[in-house]
Design a protein around this nucleic acid. Sequence first.
DNA 1: TTTTAAGCGCCCGTTTCAGAACGATTATAA
DNA 2: TTATAATCGTTCTGAAACGGGCGCTTAAAA
Lengths: 107, 107
Amino acid sequence: MKRYPVPEPVARALAKLGRDISLARRRRRLSQASLADRSGIGVNTVRRLEKGEPSGSIEHLARILYVLGELERLENLLDTGTDEVGLLMMDEDLPERIRARRSKGAL
Amino acid sequence: MKRYPVPEPVARALAKLGRDISLARRRRRLSQASLADRSGIGVNTVRRLEKGEPSGSIEHLARILYVLGELERLENLLDTGTDEVGLLMMDEDLPERIRARRSKGAL
DNA sequence: TTTTAAGCGCCCGTTTCAGAACGATTATAA
DNA sequence: TTATAATCGTTCTGAAACGGGCGCTTAAAA
């Protein structure tokens, strides 16, 4: 498949997230090694995450947040109550499958 | 390295996140294939993410949120202003390296 | 000040994942 | 109602991540 470069805003977001993870860890007085052990992952993985490298897995991010006591933030990342766009439609009415219309030029 | 099972709360958080991604996508009337194309990733990857499988990468999550117009949420996931625990200490005073004390039984 | 280990950059082998493709199912549009 | 495509479950392979290790630098503790 064609390889697409990471969009700039995405790279920025990941870098910011990494910095905040580092901050949160140091606030709790945890070394990278200690956080890695408690999270059940390698030190290198923690470092790559804090560095903002896009390669990290969601599981590892979640494990770290769990140790930091901030798992809720990930769990409620797209929570309905605060999703402005989505509030226009009731969730119960959402179709399971999204099908394009015939003639109309939908997206 | 020893393989650790995914902690239950982590699995729950990922499942919830997956459901919310699916909801957000359908609210915007996007098919999985369409979202995948716009995000520059494969359909299977979108499906695995919505399913809550822990294997997905952070980059893919970020790309999807970017397309959904919700990248900010990830960027501010651990933002200082709302990190209760961290507010106890000024960020400027945080040491770059966390070192364990000698005799005291720190963590 | 001296000591020492936290953090970084790098490399490498193993493990795992992302993407593609297939058929089957079934919700949705007409 | 019928037609069709959106979603799902599965398998497979090249590519990439993960984790471990090494040496170096230097911040933080004594």
